[in-house]
Amino acid sequence: PAVTKENNCLNAAKACNLNDTCKKYRSAYISPCTSRVSTAEVCNKRKCHKALRQFFDKVPPKHSYGMLFCSCPPVDQLACTERRRQTIVPVCSYEDKEKPNCLSLQVSCKTNYICRSRLADFFTNCQPEPRSLSGCLKENYADCLLSYSGLIGTVMTPNYLRSSQISVSPWCDCSGSGNNKEECDKFVEFFTNNTCLRNAIQAFGNGTDLSVWQPMPPV
């Protein structure tokens, strides 16, 4: 397809608000994610996460993925990528005062039933495989995108990083890893530098993988 000046992320937001279901669940998470509860807290993070999980559970991928995985061509980069980064209302759902160590974050994820199972799904379905054409071990982009979006609304909530190419990460880093530095780096790279996930997001954004539009319902 020809490179246009269209902002796909803006077009996806427009399409969402013209669809009654998408509009309803979009405002149902934006409200709690943008309502200040006290002088100390910008929002009720628990309510924001719950409403975000509902959004991805209830809204058809055509609309929810349309906003989350919209493609931003080199023209008009900033407006488009910034809008994409804002999809999950990062100031509430993502950012925190402290940036924990990723392995400690993984431990706290594993204490929660939803987070534990969704993180396991993500590691299974987005496993990279350099020898495969798709870049994935399981050659199913839809399953990878479903597992990735499933992490949104857990303590492992990932978001796009401000970088020239598609790179995502949960809100954590590997400082203070001690002897586990290597293990931590491996964990982070599964998010930040994962060919399978990157190809899956790009295939959806370019509309080159049609199977993604109607993924199998989660079992």
């Binding site: 937001a13 934006i30 809008r83």
Partner: peptide
């Protein structure tokens, strides 16, 4: 139902 949107200054 309520309607949410992002403005040009990236505020919801």
């Amino acid at each position: 139902d309520n309607l949410s949107f992002l403005d040009d200054s990236l505020v919801y």
